[in-house]
Design a protein around this nucleic acid. Structure first.
Lengths: 145, 145
DNA sequence: ATGTGTGCAAACGCTTTGCATCGTT
DNA sequence: AACGATGCAAAGCGTTTGCACACAT
């Protein structure tokens, strides 16, 4: 019983973590809300958000804050990368060490203090791959400017 | 006169691009709005957004969509990385090749079609470095879950 | 009993959009 | 004249927050 005892174990919190760990996907808060609602019909979206924030803060889950998209959440905290589908937004895992000394190289080139780095992939999920195969025509760029 | 002629050269568009290229920072839409307003007092924020979107689409500027932060915009389009200050949000440039075959390695590990990857740094800008030097105590994690 | 967690709804911040009008082509 | 661009204000969207009440400790 350390400082952690000031946080409480509620049904909501427990089930949110449980369900997030059950799904193989990386749900948005809303998607998880719908899932959890089956067990706790009265739960509110605010509670989902508050708990996801809390669980991410204590390191039990990962908040996937991707540029320009809804946040998604990952119940698996081992280090890995993510790839997001440009078509449907789905997120997949990539378990690969793609990096080597990146922080060191970067630090040599900036007067910022480098703390973290994030490697993020975008592409197309298996389902969307075919769709885009057809409509993959190149776009011309405006030469005016 | 190619397909580009269907876009028009307006005062607003010209000055937005000009000012974005002048500043050494990576301003937000609002910051740029304030700057441009000095020359075009009647310009609206909507016009700033529409033009930034447009200019990014035709590749004249880069839209820096960082997770959980306001978007920022970069008038320099040569390939480089960015580092964002965790304290004040400022963005700096890192001109370094930190990556090598990352796409290839990632593609071997996923059934997604890998299109792009983005390497993003976070840290502390020169100004904020000192401030955080003091209050850098470690946070305890909740062991309850 | 204490005070954290909850449900609800309203507010938030950034961004986008509908519309009438303007101005470039 | 045609139609893309603008200014304005309202709406949109995901997320956060204030409040009174519930419930874990």
């Amino acid at each position: 019983m350390g400082i952690e005892s000031k946080f409480r174990v509620t049904k909501q919190r427990t089930i949110i973590l449980e369900e997030l760990r059950n799904v193989r996907t990386h749900p948005t808060a809303l998607e998880l809300y719908i899932i959890v609602k089956e067990q706790l019909p009265k739960i509110s979206l605010g509670t989902i958000y508050r708990n996801l924030e809390f669980l991410a803060k204590i390191g039990k889950i990962i908040k996937l804050e991707s540029a320009g998209c809804e946040n998604r959440y990952d119940g698996f905290t081992e280090e890995h990368h993510h790839i997001r589908c440009l078509e449907c937004g789905k997120v997949g895992d990539i378990f690969a060490k793609c990096e080597r000394d990146i922080k060191v190289i970067a630090q040599e080139k900036t007067d910022f203090l480098v703390e973290e780095h994030k490697l993020e992939f975008t592409g197309y999920c298996p389902v969307c791959k075919e769709k885009i195969g057809i409509k993959n025509q190149r776009r011309k760029k405006n030469a005016e400017y």
